[in-house]
Amino acid sequence: MKRYYVMGMFSNFEEAFATVSDIRSHVIPGVSVDDVTLKSPIEHPEIEEVLGDRGSPVPKFTLFGAIFGICFGFLFLASAQATFLVQPQGGKAVVPLPSNIVLTYEMLILFGVIATVIGFLINARLMTRRHPLYSEKVSLDQIGVMLELDEKNVDPIKELFKKHKVLEIREEVSQ
């Protein structure tokens, strides 16, 4: 089935948000706000108001990484210390907790950070090809509203874009 990608470029952010807002309120039947991808030069926390809270699983990666860091860090240190014959002499603790707390703490942060970065790379779909509709103007000062549509909705969307003073409309058909 053919999928149509339509992207409207706006220089006025308010118009772009109004467009998304219109889509949200089902001005065009059969097009939902979930089909919208916003390409923006800056981060808009307020966009979640219109796009809806799409959530991010990155903190789960962080939590996993941090817990793994604690467990691995402590077990690694403790097993190293317990098998290192020379070290625990003279009646001192085999696994010294004060120093292990310091080191485990560092391992927590190290693995937490690495897991967070991995989670980010995966969830942000980085290290993939850019979408063919990507416009270099997005990195400058324009905002793009991209929709994934059925054929019948392409024209109404273009109309909607035009109503909101779109600067440029780009299209792409994929098989």
Binding site: S79, A82, T83, L85, P88, G91, A93
Partner: peptide, 24 residues
């Protein structure tokens, strides 16, 4: 071998904890 080391070290440690002046 390492498991043996762990157990030995820990038993040493326990003895140290029970008897403060214990040295081998």
């Amino acid at each position: 071998m390492s498991l043996k080391n762990i157990l030995e070290n820990w038993s040493d440690y326990r003895r140290t904890a029970e008897d403060g002046g214990h040295h081998d």
